[in-house]
């Protein structure tokens, strides 16, 4: 494949941020008002960069009076999320409300089902005093083997224990935890329907294409304005739109498990700046040789990395599929 631009480290950076913002804003306005014929938009705001940029774009497209920010904490959420979400709402002058999902999730037995699986691995685990997370180990990114998930718990003194997650426990922890994203989606639609608004979804390009979202959870929305943007581009737009520095500088987390966990640790296995560049090279058909030369990496590593990307895209196809209906 021939390319207009030779591969480089800054190949993904937007050269005209204002133009891209205006294009997204125009489409957002057209879709909400003329296509979907709704009065405004609700967005779940977590104090993270993606939901903040989506809110800022929606305000620019629809006006602050037609955007509602909803904070959706539950007992495992970081207290920082609420403070930053309030700061964001104040910055853009939008109405904000809070729906604590802890009781709803308890009703689903989300915590109970999850903790039962954790205790089968660590019998002494007590969620009132211990914290937990699941993640993958570094080092498997250049391997042809897919990653294996580990369960990590921390006792009240902060002592850490890790264990490879057997399939039954892995599935139970993930299925139970996904109640969180699906409950958030249900609550967002309640408030959207109450006002005849749309729900704006916040996945970025990596989350969508690599399957880092919950089907009918955070993957359930009417519009996803940043779905074609690399994370570096989301940051460029955040700066341009005046998203508070504290949100821009915050490390992206999963906000799913009780122990602090970065997205890099849970899923991506490399900093987003690098992921952006490699994924661009992969999806635009740059050769592993050219990418390796620019990045100062081993060509075989890049080949394995690209195979890994292909596998991720293929194995997560199920998440992006709409219900099969051609019967």
């Amino acid at each position: 494949m021939t390319h207009d631009k030779p591969f480089s480290r800054d190949i993904i950076l937007l050269s005209d941020v204002e133009y891209v913002v205006n294009e997204i804003v125009l489409k957002l306005k057209q879709e909400v008002q003329f296509h979907l014929k709704r009065f405004g938009a609700v967005i779940g705001i977590s104090g993270g960069i993606d939901s903040s940029v989506c809110l800022a774009l929606a305000v620019k497209a629809l006006g602050p009076g037609n955007v509602l920010g909803i904070m959706l904490p539950e007992k495992d959420s970081s207290p920082d999320s609420e403070r930053l979400a309030l700061k964001l709402a104040a910055q853009y002058g939008v109405e904000v409300l809070k729906e604590d999902l802890t009781q709803i999730l308890s009703g689903f037995k989300c915590y109970k089902r999850r903790d039962e699986a954790v205790r089968r691995i660590f019998p002494g685990f007590d969620s009132s005093s211990c914290k937990m997370k699941i993640g993958i180990r570094q080092g498997s990114l250049y391997s042809n083997l897919p990653p294996v998930f580990y369960l990590t718990i921390f006792d009240k003194e902060g002592n850490q224990q890790d264990h490879i997650l057997p399939v039954k426990e892995y599935l139970q922890i993930v299925a139970a935890s996904n109640f969180k994203q699906r409950s958030r989606m249900s609550m967002l639609y309640y408030h959207a329907e109450l006002r005849h608004y749309v729900v704006i979804g916040t996945p970025n390009k990596h989350e969508y294409e690599q399957g880092f979202f919950v089907k009918f959870g955070d993957g359930g929305a009417d519009l996803m304005p940043i779905i074609n943007l690399y994370k570096s581009q989301v940051y460029q737009i955040a700066s341009y739109l005046g998203v508070p520095d504290e949100i821009i500088e915050r490390t992206p987390t999963t906000d799913t498990y009780s122990a602090e966990q970065t997205q890099e640790e849970f899923f991506y296995q490399m900093p987003f700046e690098l992921m952006d560049i490699y994924w661009y090279g992969f999806e635009n058909g740059y050769s592993p040789e050219e990418v390796a030369a620019v990045m100062g990496e081993d060509q075989e590593h890049i080949q394995a990395l690209f195979r890994n990307f292909e596998r991720k895209r293929k194995t997560t196809e199920y998440l992006r599929m709409t219900p099969i209906s051609d019967f």
Binding site: L145, V148, P166, V167, K168, R311
Partner: peptide, 22 residues
């Protein structure tokens, strides 16, 4: 045959294989 490299097994397949061996 390279079962992972050729795409027959994904992450879930690998985790299930580990459980099968046990």
């Amino acid at each position: 045959s390279l079962i992972f490299q050729e795409g027959y097994f994904d992450s879930m397949g690998f985790v299930m294989l580990i459980s099968f061996l046990d």
